[in-house]
Amino acid sequence: MEDKLYTIKVWLTTLILSPILFNLLTFLKIKTFDPDSILLIFFMFGYSLIYSLPSFLIYHLSFLKLKSKLNEKSKFILIILSIILMIINVRLVFGNNSYNSNGNFSGITFSVIYCISIIISSYYFKIHKTNQWE
């Protein structure tokens, strides 16, 4: 049976994992725990949920289009598509200077963290192919 929830699992796992990774890396960098960072996780999740909806819909429709030939290559295509959509999202949210090295690397930081989360989520969940006789 095909895993109809694959795209939702990958999307939500990415949205949950990314703020946690961001806070973990921040903690490792500044070496002090800020209790407000827990609130930041929830804020980042909600913010990402809203801003990534259009990207998720494109991702899900692409999955449905590729589902007849699901294999590792199509999974790789979905990962690349997700990363491209995420970069477009970051450009829209952070603006034209999001990737400039002008001292503000927020776009780069978020992009790298979300790329890592997309890859982890995509390979963690398996896609089960449908038997054509079912």
Rank of each mutant, 00 (worst) to 15 (best):
Asp36Val: 11
Ser68Ala: 14
Phe22Ala: 11
Tyr99Lys: 03
Phe63Asn: 02
Leu5Met: 14
Asn102Thr: 10
His60Ser: 08
Asn104Pro: 07
Thr14Met: 09
Val10Ser: 01
Thr7Ala: 06
Asn100His: 14
Tyr114Ile: 11
Ile8Gln: 06
Leu49Arg: 03
Ser117Phe: 04
Tyr99Asp: 07
Trp11Tyr: 13
Leu17Val: 07
Arg91Cys: 11
Leu85Ser: 02
Thr7Glu: 07
Leu12Asp: 03
Ile79Ala: 05
Asn102Tyr: 12
Tyr47Val: 10
Lys65Ile: 12
Phe45Asp: 08
Ser37Lys: 07
Leu70Ser: 14
Tyr51Asp: 05
Gln132Ser: 14
Tyr6Thr: 01
Leu61Trp: 09
Leu64Glu: 10
Trp11Cys: 06
Thr130Lys: 13
Ile116Trp: 04
Ile50Thr: 07
Val112Phe: 08
Leu15Ala: 06
Thr26Tyr: 11
Asn96Gln: 14
Ile127Lys: 10
Ser82Phe: 01
Phe105Asn: 12
Asn97Val: 13
Met44Pro: 08
Gly95Gln: 03
Phe22His: 12
Leu53Asn: 07
Phe22Met: 13
Ser82Pro: 05
Asp36Leu: 12
Phe63Leu: 08
Lys65Phe: 10
Asp3Leu: 05
Leu53Ile: 15
Thr7Cys: 09
Ile38Leu: 15
Glu2Leu: 10
Ile108Glu: 09
Lys126Met: 11
Ile16Ala: 04
Tyr47Trp: 11
Gly107Arg: 00
Ile119Asp: 02
Leu24Gln: 12
Lys75Trp: 08
Leu78Met: 08
Lys4Asp: 05
Ile108Gln: 04
Thr13Gln: 02
Phe76Gly: 09
Val112Ser: 07
Asn89Leu: 14
Ser111Val: 04
Leu78Ser: 03
Tyr123Ala: 06
Ser122Asp: 01
Trp11Pro: 01
Asp34Pro: 06
Ser68Asn: 09
Ile84Asn: 00
Val93Ala: 05
Leu66Cys: 05
Ile116Gln: 04
Ser62Tyr: 07
Asn23Met: 14
Gly95Leu: 05
Gln132Ala: 14
Leu53Gly: 06
Ile58Asn: 02
Trp133Cys: 15
Ile119Ser: 04
Met86Ser: 04
Lys73Trp: 12
Ile79Pro: 00
Thr130Asp: 09
Gln132Trp: 15
Ser117Pro: 00
Lys9Ser: 05
Thr26Phe: 11
Ile113Val: 12
Thr14Asp: 02
Leu53Ala: 14
Ser74Gln: 04
Asp36Lys: 15
Gly107Cys: 02
Tyr114Thr: 11
Ile80Cys: 03
Lys126Trp: 06
Ile87Ser: 06
Leu81His: 01
Ile84Arg: 00
Ser101Asn: 14
Ser52Val: 06
Asn104Cys: 07
Asn104Ser: 12
Tyr114Phe: 13
Thr26Lys: 13
Phe56Gly: 02
Ile88Gly: 01
Ser48Ile: 10
Tyr6Asp: 00
Ser117Gly: 04
Ile58Arg: 01
Ile119Trp: 03
Gly95Trp: 01
His60Pro: 01
Trp133Gln: 13
Asn131Met: 10
Ser62Phe: 06
Ile113Glu: 00
Leu57Val: 11
Tyr59Glu: 05
Tyr114Arg: 02
Gly103Phe: 09
Thr14Gln: 03
Ile38Gln: 08
Tyr6Gln: 01
Met86Thr: 03
Asp34Glu: 12
Phe33Met: 07
Lys4Leu: 04
Lys129Ile: 09
Ser52Asn: 10
Ile58Tyr: 03
Leu81Met: 08
